[in-house]
């Protein structure tokens, strides 16, 4: 265990990652709470009314960060799944598992807020255009992934099956993102992208970005906490878990 120099791969070992996650999670949770409150303040009190839509556009401060997060989390899940398949590391599969529920949550939020935003602006809660349909597919992919890994008892096989679904499903993410460019959709194009200047007033953009960073911090905190439970479950026969249980029993 004693190693002379710092090695990042040390934290690929569940035993080392568990206490690290325990230390980092509260930091990210506090960051998320602060950013979330700041984001709410900007969203309602600093960002001005929209010329076209009036106040209803304020749904954007949740809708867009949630939609970004739902796509990004799926890509990170696919990344960890690939790492797990290639290097056979235990922790990477656990990371993928820990991300899925939060991804599904953000995906649901994006769809829900989208529906509530669509009714007063477009005139419909739901339409089957390419953007909305592919985002709905993403929600089903999350549900499918969670159901699949829970349906298989052998953890190794569950990891593998889940990883394959995560990787295959990742194709859907660029489809969601580019759907508004590739096809005629009712959904408008991106207001913020890497290729052009944002088509939003600065304070509106600020509100959206602060909320997006809050969502990031929240995701990291929640994932780290969830992966700690997963690590305990998976490593329950290891001596260090035994010692951790001693500590938890004494504290209780």
């Amino acid at each position: 265990m004693t190693r002379s120099r710092f090695n990042i791969f040390r934290f690929a070992v569940p035993q080392n990652f568990y206490p690290l996650a325990g230390k980092l999670a509260p930091i990210f949770a506090v960051t998320a709470a602060v950013l979330f409150l700041a984001g709410l303040w900007i969203s309602f009190f600093i960002a001005p009314t929209d010329a076209q839509q009036g106040e209803v556009y304020r749904v954007i401060f949740i809708h867009v960060p949630a939609a970004w997060m739902s796509m990004f989390i799926y890509l990170v899940m696919a990344f960890w799944s690939a790492v797990g398949l290639v290097f056979n590391t235990r922790l990477s599969a656990m990371m993928a598992h820990a991300l899925a529920p939060t991804g599904a949550m953000f995906c649901f939020v994006a769809l829900w807020t989208g529906a509530l935003w669509g009714r007063p602006t477009w005139g419909a809660y739901w339409v089957w255009d390419a953007r909305l349909t592919s985002q709905l597919l993403l929600l089903f992919l999350y549900f499918g992934y969670i159901a699949l890994i829970n349906a298989i008892d052998d953890p190794r096989r569950a990891d593998k099956a889940g990883a394959i679904l995560a990787l295959v499903g990742a194709i859907n993410v660029p489809i969601i993102y580019f759907s508004v460019k590739w096809w005629n959709t009712l959904h408008q194009g991106a207001s913020v992208s890497l290729t052009k200047a944002p088509s939003m007033a600065t304070t509106m953009l600020m509100g959206m970005l602060v909320m997006a960073f809050a969502a990031w911090a929240y995701t990291i905190a929640v994932t780290l906490w969830r992966v700690r439970s997963l690590i305990l479950e998976r490593e329950r026969n290891a001596e260090w878990v035994n010692e951790e249980l001693d500590r938890l029993e004494a504290a209780a």
């Binding site: 009036g54 106040e55 209803v56 304020r58 749904v59 949550m105 939020v109 829900w112 807020t113 509530l116």
Partner: peptide, 18 residues
């Protein structure tokens, strides 16, 4: 919310709940 209370607060409340 400029008459859009149902839609705006419906979005924020459900997000908070989940």
């Amino acid at each position: 919310m400029g008459g859009a209370a149902t839609f705006v607060w419906g979005s924020y409340a459900v997000t908070l709940i989940v």
